[in-house]
Amino acid sequence: MPALAKYMLRRLAQLLPVALIIVLCSYMLLRMAPGDMVDVMAGESGSATPEYMAQLREQFDLNAPGYVLFGRYLNNLAHLDLGYSFRNNMQVAELIAQRVPATLTLMLVAVVIAAVLGISLGAVSARYRGRWLDEVISTLSTIGFATPVFWVGLLLIVVFSINLRWLPSAGMQTIGGVDGFWPSLLDRLRYMALPALSLSFFYLSIYVRMTRSAMLEVYGLDYVRTARAKGISELCIAVRHVLRNALLPLVTITGLQLGSLMGGSIVVETVFSWPGLGRLAFDAVFQRDINLLLGIFLCSSFLVILMNLLVDLLYAMLDPRIEIRS
Rank of each mutant, 00 (worst) to 15 (best):
C299W: 12
F286R: 07
L197Q: 04
T139P: 05
V152E: 04
L303W: 09
S138F: 06
N163C: 10
L204P: 11
S233V: 05
L248E: 11
T252D: 14
V136N: 03
L293H: 01
A5P: 00
V92S: 00
F70P: 00
V239Y: 12
R321C: 02
L303F: 10
G130Y: 08
H79K: 13
T226D: 04
L12M: 13
W182G: 02
V268A: 06
G255S: 13
A33G: 09
V116T: 15
L62N: 13
L155R: 04
P275V: 03
L9T: 08
A115F: 15
D283R: 08
I96H: 00
S47N: 13
M90L: 13
G46T: 12
L313Y: 04
G43A: 11
F145P: 01
V111E: 08
M307F: 15
Q98D: 11
D312E: 08
F302C: 15
N76L: 03
I96L: 02
L261Q: 08
D81N: 12
F202S: 02
A64L: 11
Y84M: 12
F282Y: 14
P275H: 03
L30T: 10
A146Y: 06
K6L: 12
G66H: 11
S326F: 08
W132G: 09
I237E: 06
R129G: 10
I253Q: 13
V224Y: 06
S265V: 02
L247W: 05
N89Y: 09
F86E: 14
M262T: 15
D319E: 14
M37Q: 14
S120I: 14
L62C: 10
G180Y: 12
Y27Q: 06
R288A: 09
F282E: 01
R325S: 14
L15P: 02
E44V: 12
L56K: 12
S205L: 03
